[in-house]
Design a protein around this nucleic acid. Structure first.
Lengths: 345, 345
DNA sequence: CATTCACCTGACAACGTTGTCCAGGGCCTA
DNA sequence: TAGGCCCTGGACAACGTTGTCAGGTGAATG
């Protein structure tokens, strides 16, 4: 009643500010600021009065104003493909833990493997003035990030390298891992081995394919065109690809799956077949041990942690040339890799 | 050189502001603002000049200043237990999608099932002035949120209800789901059924236990003390609990697992035993179909989406009393539920 | 008792943006 | 040709906080 339309826009609630706290405590604005920030130079008695006013009013510092004044937001942005993918959950969590240890919050965004959406997210994060960015790139050209990086936004790419700019990257050894996995199949006597991977514009997909080809070449084995299928990881597409290479004139006796999503679909296809077919998959999968699936394991949490640590080292002022870290993968052998129909009753 | 220490604190990069853009384009500050926000009332020619200056300088609007001025941040906070848990990934992603549709960004935080950490995260989000909060509560007392809610922070609880305050909640039917799952085991002839669940301070754990007891009572079955184990979901603890109830004087012939983490450990225990033991688990699990695990499925993405939609309805000004939505669960029967040793070769 | 000094405290400006409001100029109409 | 209107553009204040700096009080010291 008494207070009519003090504000230009409708507000759902009025928040007390330091000014209000100061008025109530009968002190100056700056004194409140000092108390809130735990700065020295405030009498215990004054501090108590301020604290009481803060509690009474339910005051909470407005970080937007603080950021505006101080320049740093104590937050970092993480752009990944899909938070719902079990590969990215642990990665994101690991990044969060490192951020937390440095007093920073994490803003997440899923690009859905779309380059435009990736850029949109990254730029939105930059507008929020995140201190740093961790990006699992969907697109292949990151020159749009140059002004941001120049302006001081530390940036680390994960899982896949940046496109057309020089930046830090933390990768898994896709090439070596795939090569080892395929060699494992060769060692178990397989000669006709298929490869089903993600879309060719994705760096890890082509690297793993390269590893596959290298392993086959190492063993002196030719690769038939029908044995290689790159494309979307939609179950339907993967199923078709798997069935095609299992039923051609030269059917494969083993399949190398390029990532976790491919693996789960291939497992289902193989489980429905009469004759056992071997499988090695890139990325570990929950319960894979029980199904006897051999995998090339990459620890996504370590990937995330490594990237985040690098990011914060940069934010702490370490100034060195951008570099790429490649983390090793681990082959986890589970049986000879044959997938059979389950023992469901 | 010419410009020495213009700023008080070291900055890693100087960002151009609207003022800089205005100077370069030879227009007023407000005109730049108009162009940036797509407001009407700017000549095409002027607009072009401004755009050029923006590109040349690499200007990016500072959202902190914008927020300070406008009052709303177009961001929401999500506090969950652990982003790495496959139950929460899809939930978070679903929330993100709804937020995106409303032009908002998502800030994530994992409470690690710790009440203090939950509060810390929530208050940090409030200091950032998120427009809304979605909370999967770890603690049991949320009165600390009252001033925030009064100040206009829309809040929705998910998966578990709020403690000691009246707030919106979106839950799964833990009681009904568990009851149905246990009834399924009873229908398959089981009389001695064990229950392994999460810690008793977690609402869903006790609700599911209640469902278990109800189903047993429905069937006129007594429940031995040794058949019920609530506690941490650490694999070791679950393994011990499972083995205890499988080897007592009255060993169970079936186990109801209270959530996905319990289920995966129990599956491993059961797979190692000679005699098949039946299992029904709360939450679906990847590849559960191949292992023949019957589950009570709750769609975590729907949970997240429902909560987010409710949140944004509130932000859009819908003013109704807080209410609780309970989403149904689905029993997915896979065989009779017996877990046998895998057919690993 | 006067003076110095240390320690508290508060006034003020600035961070970058947007809302308000006013001025100037071009164009249309009488 | 003059009057008036509309359209465009800019000056200014305010959002809530923090850094700077100056003032003021009390105690300690000569």
């Amino acid at each position: 009643m008494a207070e009519t339309a003090r504000h230009h826009e409708p507000r759902y609630g009025i928040r007390p500010t330091m000014k209000d706290v100061a008025a109530r405590a009968g002190v100056g604005l700056k004194t409140v600021s000092r108390v809130v920030n735990g700065e020295a130079g405030v009498t215990p008695d004054t501090e108590r009065r301020v604290m009481e006013a803060i509690d009474a009013l339910g005051f909470r510092r407005n970080d937007s104003a603080r950021v505006l004044r101080k320049g740093r937001t104590a937050s970092i942005g993480l752009v990944l493909e899909d938070l719902a993918d079990p590969f990215y959950g642990p990665l994101s969590r690991a990044v969060e833990e490192v951020a937390r240890a440095h007093g920073a919050l994490l803003i997440n965004g899923s690009s859905a493997e779309d380059a435009d959406r990736e850029q949109e997210l990254v730029l939105a994060f930059c507008a929020r003035r995140v201190d740093g960015l961790i990006v699992i790139p969907a697109g292949g050209d990151h020159r749009y990030l140059e002004p941001e990086i120049k302006a001081g936004v530390a940036t680390v790419f994960v899982d896949r390298p940046a496109g057309r700019i020089d930046a830090d990257a933390v990768l898994s050894d896709s090439f070596g891992g795939a090569r080892e996995g395929v060699a494992h199949l060769v060692a178990h006597g397989h000669r006709r081995i298929g490869f089903i991977g993600d879309q060719p514009r994705i760096h890890t997909a082509t690297e793993r394919l390269r590893g596959y080809r290298a392993a086959m070449a190492d063993a002196g084995l030719a690769v038939a065109d029908e044995w290689v299928a790159l494309g979307s990881t939609e179950p339907e597409r993967v199923r078709e690809a798997a069935e095609a290479m299992l039923s051609g004139p030269e059917p494969v006796t083993a399949v190398f799956a390029g990532n976790n999503r491919v693996t789960v679909t291939v497992v289902r296809v193989l489980a429905g077949r009469e004759h056992p077919v071997a499988l090695v998959g890139f990325d570990d999968i929950e319960l894979a041990d029980l199904l006897g699936i051999t995998v090339i394991s990459q620890d996504s949490a370590t990937l995330g942690r490594t990237a985040a640590e690098r990011l914060f080292r940069r934010l702490d002022g370490v100034d060195e040339a951008p570099s790429t870290v490649v983390l090793p993968t681990t082959l986890i052998a589970r049986g000879s890799g044959e997938i059979r129909p389950p023992a469901a009753s």
